[in-house]
Protein backbone atom coordinates (compact mmCIF):
# COMPACT_ATOMS: atom_id res chain seq x y z
CA UNK A 1 0.00 0.00 0.00
CA UNK A 2 1.14 3.53 -0.68
CA UNK A 3 2.64 4.88 2.55
CA UNK A 4 1.11 8.32 2.11
CA UNK A 5 -2.37 6.83 1.95
CA UNK A 6 -2.14 4.46 4.91
CA UNK A 7 -3.38 5.69 8.26
CA UNK A 8 -0.97 5.58 11.16
CA UNK A 9 -2.44 3.35 13.90
CA UNK A 10 -1.74 6.23 16.28
CA UNK A 11 -4.62 8.10 14.65
CA UNK A 12 -7.00 5.26 15.53
CA UNK A 13 -5.81 5.31 19.12
CA UNK A 14 -6.22 9.06 19.22
CA UNK A 15 -9.78 8.66 17.91
CA UNK A 16 -10.54 6.10 20.63
CA UNK A 17 -9.05 8.43 23.24
CA UNK A 18 -11.06 11.48 22.14
CA UNK A 19 -14.32 9.53 21.92
CA UNK A 20 -13.69 7.96 25.34
CA UNK A 21 -13.27 11.46 26.81
CA UNK A 22 -16.72 12.32 25.48
CA UNK A 23 -18.21 9.10 26.84
CA UNK A 24 -16.63 9.86 30.22
CA UNK A 25 -17.88 13.43 30.10
CA UNK A 26 -21.52 12.49 29.57
CA UNK A 27 -21.53 9.49 31.88
CA UNK A 28 -19.94 11.39 34.76
CA UNK A 29 -22.31 14.34 34.48
CA UNK A 30 -25.14 11.90 35.13
CA UNK A 31 -23.55 10.70 38.39
CA UNK A 32 -25.57 11.91 41.35
CA UNK A 33 -23.74 14.32 43.68
CA UNK A 34 -24.46 12.02 46.63
CA UNK A 35 -22.16 9.43 45.06
CA UNK A 36 -19.20 11.66 44.23
CA UNK A 37 -16.99 10.01 46.86
CA UNK A 38 -17.68 6.47 45.56
CA UNK A 39 -17.13 7.88 42.03
CA UNK A 40 -13.61 8.84 43.05
CA UNK A 41 -12.85 5.48 44.61
CA UNK A 42 -14.29 3.59 41.61
CA UNK A 43 -12.37 5.70 39.06
CA UNK A 44 -9.30 5.19 41.19
CA UNK A 45 -9.78 1.43 41.10
CA UNK A 46 -10.34 1.28 37.34
CA UNK A 47 -7.38 3.55 36.56
CA UNK A 48 -5.29 0.79 38.13
CA UNK A 49 -5.88 -1.10 34.89
CA UNK A 50 -2.34 0.20 34.37
CA UNK A 51 -1.53 -3.19 35.92
CA UNK A 52 -1.76 -4.68 32.40
CA UNK A 53 1.40 -2.75 31.51
CA UNK A 54 3.07 -3.98 34.68
CA UNK A 55 2.15 -7.62 33.89
CA UNK A 56 3.99 -7.42 30.57
CA UNK A 57 7.09 -5.96 32.22
CA UNK A 58 6.99 -8.71 34.86
CA UNK A 59 6.25 -11.49 32.36
CA UNK A 60 9.68 -12.66 31.09
CA UNK A 61 11.40 -15.63 32.77
CA UNK A 62 14.82 -14.03 33.32
CA UNK A 63 15.13 -11.45 36.09
CA UNK A 64 15.90 -7.92 34.90
CA UNK A 65 15.53 -4.32 36.08
CA UNK A 66 12.44 -4.03 33.92
CA UNK A 67 10.93 -7.12 35.53
CA UNK A 68 11.57 -5.79 39.05
CA UNK A 69 9.84 -2.51 38.15
CA UNK A 70 6.92 -4.49 36.77
CA UNK A 71 6.58 -6.62 39.91
CA UNK A 72 6.57 -3.57 42.18
CA UNK A 73 4.02 -1.86 39.92
CA UNK A 74 1.79 -4.95 40.09
CA UNK A 75 1.90 -4.79 43.89
CA UNK A 76 1.00 -1.09 43.95
CA UNK A 77 -1.80 -1.48 41.41
CA UNK A 78 -3.16 -4.50 43.30
CA UNK A 79 -3.45 -2.43 46.48
CA UNK A 80 -5.51 0.04 44.48
CA UNK A 81 -7.65 -2.49 42.65
CA UNK A 82 -8.65 -4.47 45.74
CA UNK A 83 -8.72 -1.43 48.02
CA UNK A 84 -10.62 0.73 45.54
CA UNK A 85 -13.32 -1.74 44.57
CA UNK A 86 -13.84 -3.09 48.09
CA UNK A 87 -14.05 0.30 49.77
CA UNK A 88 -16.49 1.39 47.04
CA UNK A 89 -18.57 -1.71 47.72
CA UNK A 90 -18.49 -0.95 51.44
CA UNK A 91 -19.59 2.64 50.90
CA UNK A 92 -22.29 1.81 48.37
CA UNK A 93 -23.75 -0.80 50.73
CA UNK A 94 -24.40 2.03 53.20
CA UNK A 95 -26.63 4.07 50.89
CA UNK A 96 -30.07 2.89 51.95
CA UNK A 97 -33.56 4.16 51.60
CA UNK A 98 -35.85 3.55 54.54
CA UNK A 99 -39.21 1.99 53.80
Amino acid sequence: MDVANSIDPFIYRLAIFVLAIFVGYYVVWSVTAALHTPLMSVTNAISSVIIVGALIAAGPVEMSFSKILGIVAIGLAAVNIFGGFLVSQRMLAMYKKKQ
Binding site: R13, F17, A20, V23, Y25, V27, V28, I46, G53
Partner: peptide, 21 residues
Amino acid sequence: TLENTALIITGALVGSSGAIL
Protein backbone atom coordinates in the same frame (compact mmCIF):
# COMPACT_ATOMS: atom_id res chain seq x y z
CA THR B 1 3.11 4.33 24.75
CA LEU B 2 2.17 0.68 25.17
CA GLU B 3 -0.41 0.85 22.37
CA ASN B 4 -2.99 -0.53 24.77
CA THR B 5 -6.60 0.49 24.15
CA ALA B 6 -7.89 -0.60 27.58
CA LEU B 7 -5.50 1.87 29.20
CA ILE B 8 -6.29 4.65 26.74
CA ILE B 9 -10.06 4.33 27.21
CA THR B 10 -9.91 3.96 30.98
CA GLY B 11 -7.46 6.83 31.29
CA ALA B 12 -9.77 9.07 29.26
CA LEU B 13 -12.78 8.09 31.40
CA VAL B 14 -10.98 8.74 34.68
CA GLY B 15 -9.35 11.90 33.37
CA SER B 16 -12.63 13.46 32.32
CA SER B 17 -14.33 12.29 35.52
CA GLY B 18 -11.77 14.06 37.72
CA ALA B 19 -11.89 17.15 35.53
CA ILE B 20 -15.67 17.38 35.88
CA LEU B 21 -15.47 16.98 39.66
